[in-house]
Simulated scan of single mutants.
Amino acid sequence: MGTPVTVYPGTDDALHGVVVEDFADLAGTAVEIAGERIVGPARRWAVNLDDGGLVFVDDDSIAADPQLA
């Protein structure tokens, strides 16, 4: 927690922020009730963005940002 990161690195949508939660083993499981999906899989990382937003992303959408450390 507290690690500076870039979300969506290498894209025009790149954002900067700080990791606030790692859901690790809880991520990646969809919820189904009676065969109907009510929610998709959770993302692993919660990132508080520099602009005040909050995003949830997986490993392929986040990179440590050593320039901001």
Rank of each mutant, 00 (worst) to 15 (best):
E21I: 00
G52H: 01
D51H: 06
D25H: 12
T29A: 14
L68Q: 12
I62W: 04
V5A: 07
D50F: 03
D50G: 00
G17C: 07
D59N: 13
M1C: 11
G10D: 15
A14H: 03
V19S: 03
V57W: 04
T6A: 11
R37K: 15
A46Y: 04
V7F: 09
V57C: 04
G53A: 03
L15F: 04
V20T: 15
D60P: 05
M1H: 12
G10I: 06
T6E: 14
A24Y: 10
R37C: 12
T3M: 15
G53T: 01
P66Q: 00
V47S: 08
V57E: 03
V39W: 11
R43P: 01
R44I: 07
Y8E: 13
L15A: 12
Q67S: 14
L54Q: 10
T3P: 01
R44C: 05
T6C: 07
L68Y: 05
E36T: 09
G28S: 03
R37A: 13
D51E: 02
A69M: 09
G10Y: 11
F23G: 00
L49K: 02
A63E: 09
V31S: 10
N48I: 00
D65W: 00
P4K: 12
T3C: 09
V18L: 10
E32W: 06
A24M: 12
G53L: 03
G2L: 08
D59P: 04
V18S: 12
R43V: 09
G52M: 03
V19Q: 07
V57T: 03
T11G: 08
G52I: 01
A69E: 13
P4H: 10
W45L: 08
P66V: 10
E21Q: 14
L15E: 14
A34M: 13
D12K: 12
H16N: 15
V57K: 05
N48C: 00
S61K: 11
L54F: 09
G2D: 03
A63M: 07
D13S: 13
G17L: 09
A42K: 15
H16E: 14
F56T: 05
V31A: 11
L26N: 13
L68R: 14
P41R: 12
D59W: 04
A64D: 15
P4D: 09
G10Q: 12
V5P: 07
P66E: 11
F56N: 08
E36G: 02
T6P: 00
E32F: 11
G52Q: 03
L49F: 02
L26G: 14
A27K: 05
R43N: 15
G17A: 04
